[in-house]
Design a protein around this nucleic acid. Sequence first.
RNA 1: GGCGGCAUAGCCAAGUGGUAAGGCAACGGCCUGCAAAGCCGCUAUUCUCCAGUUCGAAUCUGGAUGCCGCCUCCA
Length: 499
Amino acid sequence: MTINIYNSLNRSKEPFETLEPGRVKMYVCGPTVYDSCHIGHARSVIVFDVIYRYLTAVGYDVTYVRNFTDIDDKIINRSNELGVSPESLAEKYIDEFHHDMDALNVLRPTLEPRATDHIDHIIRIIEILMDKKYAYASDGDVFFSVDLFKGYGKLSGRKLDDMVAGARVDVDQRKKNPFDFVLWKASKPNEPFWDSPWGKGRPGWHIECSAMSEDYLGASFDIHGGGKDLIFPHHENEIAQSEAAFGKTFVRFWIHNGFVNINHEKMSKSLGNFLMIKDIVKEYHPEAIRLFLLSHHYRSPVDFTDQAIKNVASGLDKIYALLDRAEKYLGSLPDVNSNYHKDVIASQKDFWVLFCDAMNDDFNTAQGIGVLFDAVRSLNRLLDQLDQSDQTNETDQTNQSDDIQNRQIIHNECLNILKMGDILGLLTVSPGAYFQQKKESVITKKSFDAEMIEAMIQERQDARKAKDFKKADEVRDRLKEMNIEIEDRPEGTIWKVLS
RNA sequence: GGCGGCAUAGCCAAGUGGUAAGGCAACGGCCUGCAAAGCCGCUAUUCUCCAGUUCGAAUCUGGAUGCCGCCUCCA
């Protein structure tokens, strides 16, 4: 089995090979903790969450590091505005980040280091760069000299000569080249600072990632990820610093996710259209948000609209409804938490293998979700057939052995579906809990009374028994207006909330 | 100005040389008192347009048009 990954460094898909057999070392740029997380953060975090889950599931021992940038101009500015310390501001948003991501079923990485815990390490790397003459100091600031690093521009495809210096920003006159960037920044009065050989100051933005990745993963590691916007200058500068300091290839595979638009527009401060995670999880099921984000390839842009996510939510209902059917047939659903990576190599092309084929092709979750729905349809079809034969056949010996066989098939197919869900971070609750949760949310939101709904359903049942179908249909129409749909099942009438 | 990306049905979206997955929506059928759910069928002779390479192109090349991102310590 080979996983092909699109490597931003070479702009092509390449077979994934690790530095150490069976081990993956992965670093993903985490948030600067000065504000609440929005849907764009969610996408990045979820994309790499799925990559982490998949690599682990197929048997890799993955060390996944995702940092917090907890010292930075934006944090300082914000804390000044609010009159709180930068530390407490960072702490607050780290808590909120965890809270949001937990709500979205995101697994915690192996390590979540913070920049401020690595100041000594940062200073050491800057000293190495000073010794090697890649860096120069000026008035307490330290800059990296891009002209001296031969590979500068190799990730972003930029050539220093082609770039218009200072096209959009004033050039700092102390820089030897306008694209030189800050490694260490002298602190102004009333700003947080650490002592350094160049005076009191704080790290530049890019150097922290070089320090933390080296600390936990070494000077050379397998995967580095982040949003597309980080390619230049952040990741370009990380490469320059790390490779200049340590003399080794920094990262083998660079993975960058695309952006989220809101109603065809970029999220921006001026438009005021930032969609915060804490707000959308109130409106939509967290798994609907995941399914929505993962139904697009991770490198493509995603356009978030109410209609789009509602459509996806209908699809999620469909999967849970199937699981509900299967659970009733089997008595209980298979346990997906059992160790399953060993059976990845299947003798035939079952849905799990097809799903893995999709994932192996640059983590193509959109295609994988297609396979998931194929599996759902296939299992529904089988259950339909069994329902029909139940009605026509009497029990005899052959039926009993068929029954055992059918249960086995349904169990396996169901397990495949749950395994796919496990990789995508979906289908993590029981079908009963899922539909119950939807009911409760509509009851709370619209202040409906569950007992009232039950009473209406009973009213309709009574009317049906009396063959008063006109009245029965009226009751059903009234429920429909309340966004509630009923289903007459063999075991009784149930109701559910429309997405 | 430099660099990069995208354009596939009513909508969303896979597919990167071998004859168009999947979801949502619509319509027809089975089922049902009628519905709903589920299943079956139907829905792009065709992938923005033009030219080229090829036995063969949504996929490769050149050009046109449209949209978007980065070059601002924005995921």
